[in-house]
């Protein structure tokens, strides 16, 4: 019990330096980037030319003329209270912008994760149950094909088939749940193939191990060996992969969100970059960095608790 708490506390504390690192990097991205944010704020469209005095004044109001460490401390202090500044180009607070964007990305990422996890594990297991039949062979080849298909191509194909030819689903916008169907599919099909192939190969490898062979000799059915013996033994690395995938798409899939015109985090990032909107970009980097750290923390703890080989200190 003691060792367990020890591990959990250590793992949670180890997050602190990482978060500190993220804040430094986030801050310096904006600080080191070329271009003068004061000038950018005054001149967003390239139509209006501000005078030198106006720019100087704007610099003072924005605080961008102070030393870097005082800028960092004032920035982090505000950030801790949830004040990430205001977007240069649309004057919204970064926090409210995030509040608008995150739900969209979540509604994309959570179903994509579930689809990937369930689809990958079920299809991979099917392959291991009956590897020689024709449908399973076709499935294995499909895995290879989808594994090699870039997501944007898949997205375009889906739009073409489902949207243009069959006219079943909307291809852009998020007026209702239907808008999320195509992007979710585009996001998860590739990863279903990744997970499915991994499950299939790992199961095939596991079934050849002595304990599965002995179980077979003891008269335990192949199906039972796959589900009760091999699958639980390979599930930990699969969970780790799914966790990483979730972290990746929680940052917003920039390409998919752009193709389907979803107002999620990914399109926010593109916008921020286009307008050199540093506060918005900082908000994005900070948010995705922190979620990634959080997910890997949860993942580590989950794997730790699920693995009986580590749990045995309880006795």
């Amino acid at each position: 019990m003691n060792m367990k708490m020890n591990f959990i506390v250590k793992r949670v504390l180890s997050v602190i330096p990482v978060l500190f690192g993220i804040s430094i990097i986030t801050f310096s991205i904006a600080f080191l980037a070329p271009g003068d944010p004061a000038e950018m704020t005054l001149d967003q469209n390239g139509i209006y030319f501000p005078t030198q005095e106006q720019i100087e004044q704007m610099r003072v109001t924005m605080g961008v003329n102070a030393s870097w460490h005082s800028q960092y401390f004032s920035w982090i202090k505000k950030a801790l209270y949830g004040d990430l500044g205001h977007s240069y180009h649309n004057k919204n607070s970064v926090l409210s912008e995030l509040r608008m964007r995150v739900p969209v990305t979540l509604q994309l990422a959570v179903p994509a994760l579930l689809l990937t996890g369930l689809g990958g594990i079920i299809l991979g297991t099917l392959c291991a149950l009956d590897p020689k039949t024709l449908p399973i062979r076709i499935l294995s080849h499909l895995f290879d094909i989808f594994l090699a298909t870039p997501r944007f191509l898949l997205a375009l194909l889906l739009i073409f088939v489902m949207g243009e030819i069959l006219r079943l689903l909307p291809t852009s916008g998020v007026t209702d749940y239907k808008g999320y169907l195509l992007p979710t599919m585009a996001l998860s099909i590739t990863t279903i193939a990744v997970v499915g192939r991994l499950v299939k190969n790992k199961l095939a490898e596991e079934i050849r191990k002595p304990y599965c062979f002995i179980a077979l000799a003891h008269g335990i059915q192949h199906r039972q060996i796959v589900f009760l013996y091999a699958l639980p033994n390979i599930i930990l690395p699969i969970i780790a992969i799914l966790g990483n995938f979730f972290g990746e798409i929680l940052g917003g899939s920039i390409i998919i969100e752009n193709i389907f015109a979803l107002p999620g985090l990914g399109s926010m990032a593109i916008e921020a970059i286009r307008f050199r909107d540093y506060p918005l970009l900082q908000g994005y980097v900070l948010f995705t960095g922190c979620t990634y750290v959080l997910i890997s923390l949860v993942l580590d703890l989950l794997l730790y608790l699920l693995n009986p080989k580590i749990r045995f200190e309880e006795y």
Binding site: P210, Y211, C212, A215, N233, N307, K309
Partner: peptide, 13 residues
């Protein structure tokens, strides 16, 4: 069947 090496003849989890 009594297998040869006991340590890897049982399901570890």
């Amino acid at each position: 069947i009594i297998p040869q090496s006991p340590s890897d003849a049982l399901n570890p989890i």
